[in-house]
Write a protein that binds this DNA or RNA. Structure first.
Length: 125
DNA sequence: ATGCTGACTATGT
DNA sequence: TACATAGCCAGCA
C-alpha cells in the first residue's frame, strides 16, 4: 500500500502515473459520509497536484460503474460543477448530499469550512 | 503528429 | 457577477 504511494511518481515527480484513475478512485472513496471534497483536493490527495481537470475527466468516464461517492466531489468554492453539464445529475448530486446531512446555501453552494473533508495525512489544500 | 474539448482552478479586468 | 487568460493534461477525431 505504502509501497505504491512511495514511488517517485506519487509526489514530486511530474511523471503522470499510469494508474492515475485508480488513485483518483481511491481518493474519492476516502471522502467520509456527510463531507465533500473539491476536484483540486482530490487531485492532490491522489498525488496529482494541479490536475483537477483530470479528476473531472476520470469521473466523467466512470459514471456507469461508479460505486464511488462521486456526489461528494464539488468544484472550487463548494459548487456543483455537474449542474453545468447535466442539470438532472446535478440535482441528484445535491439530493444525495442533503440526504447525508450536507447543507446548501441560498446560492446553491456548500460551506467548505463546515462540510469540507479534512484528511489527516498526505494531502493538503 | 496536431488541434480541440473539457464534472477544473486561480487570477485579473 | 460575468468574461478573459493562463496553467493544467488525458482522450479523441
Amino acid at each position: 500500500m505504502l509501497d505504491e504511494l512511495a514511488r517517485p511518481s506519487a509526489v514530486g515527480s511530474r511523471r503522470p502515473p499510469a494508474d492515475a484513475y485508480a488513485r483518483i478512485h481511491a481518493a474519492i472513496a476516502r471522502i467520509p459520509r456527510g463531507r465533500v471534497a473539491t476536484y483540486g483536493q482530490i487531485a492532490t490527495v491522489a498525488g496529482l497536484p494541479g490536475r483537477a481537470r483530470q479528476v473531472g475527466y476520470a469521473l466523467y468516464a466512470l459514471t456507469d460503474a461508479h460505486s464511488l461517492p462521486w456526489h461528494r466531489v464539488l468544484a472550487a468554492g463548494g459548487r456543483i460543477s455537474l449542474m453545468r453539464l447535466d442539470v438532472g445529475s446535478g440535482l441528484e448530486q445535491r439530493r444525495r448530499l442533503e440526504m447525508e446531512g450536507v447543507r446548501f446555501g441560498a446560492r446553491g453552494r456548500v460551506d467548505l469550512d463546515a462540510f469540507g473533508w479534512r484528511p489527516r495525512s498526505r494531502s493538503r489544500r
